[in-house]
Amino acid sequence: MNNNNEENILQVQHLQKKYGDHTVLKDISFNINKGEVMTIIGPSGGGKSTMLRCINLLEEPSNGKILFHGENILDPHFNRNTFRSKVGMVFQQFNLFNNKNVLQNCMIGQEMVLGRSKEEAKKVAIENLQKVGMDPFLTAKPQQLSGGQQQRVAIARAISMDPEVLLFDEPTSALDPEMVGEVLNTMQLLAKTGLTMVIVTHEMGFARDVSDQVVFMSDGVITEQGTPQQIFNDPQEEKTKKFLRNFRNNEL
């Protein structure tokens, strides 16, 4: 899945995030290449969400640099809204627009941000809803859908923007177990299209199967980083080993 001419699409350099005196992210650096799938694992409270939210500027980093195609997104003159339209995000709580139906959820960003016509937006939205298997529910409101269905619509909404990078923050953690599969399948198909993805997840089997890179984060630092093979089969750090031991029995 890796391109040979590896182009760095996203480079995080010495990222730091503080809430008051509490330093949540200490010194985070990593690179993601175009088309690569990176999963981030680690214990709760380790700063995974915060890191993801810094990348699309839902949180303002306290220090460091984030380069998108080599351009620093923290530069005051950088157009943040355009950047955000190129970096999609799928949330743990889905966050579908409650006042819009399924189709409208997938159209509004295209019309408002990308300036697409209604017809074009609708065409793209329906295509993507077909891909996630939600096309029978075009006029349903989010409240009328199950969690798994909502999350699939959220994915369709995100890819309708034709993003270059898609961020996932524990997309299956709020789901009933029987719905986890449908969402992971959708993501797996998505990974194969060559979309650059950064996924925070506790689904270790999934992480091992789809990732190009795995990052283990705890206490605001990247403790260990490598291929799925290296992290899951041959972890070096004690923290990683301990963390993975909890999963090994039931999942791997």
Partner: peptide
Amino acid sequence: PKGQFEAASAIGMTHSQQMWHIILPQ
């Protein structure tokens, strides 16, 4: 819910677009 603002920000909507199309109707 804060998630409504965040989802709208995450697809690149400006504050006023978020307000008019997502937040105020709710």
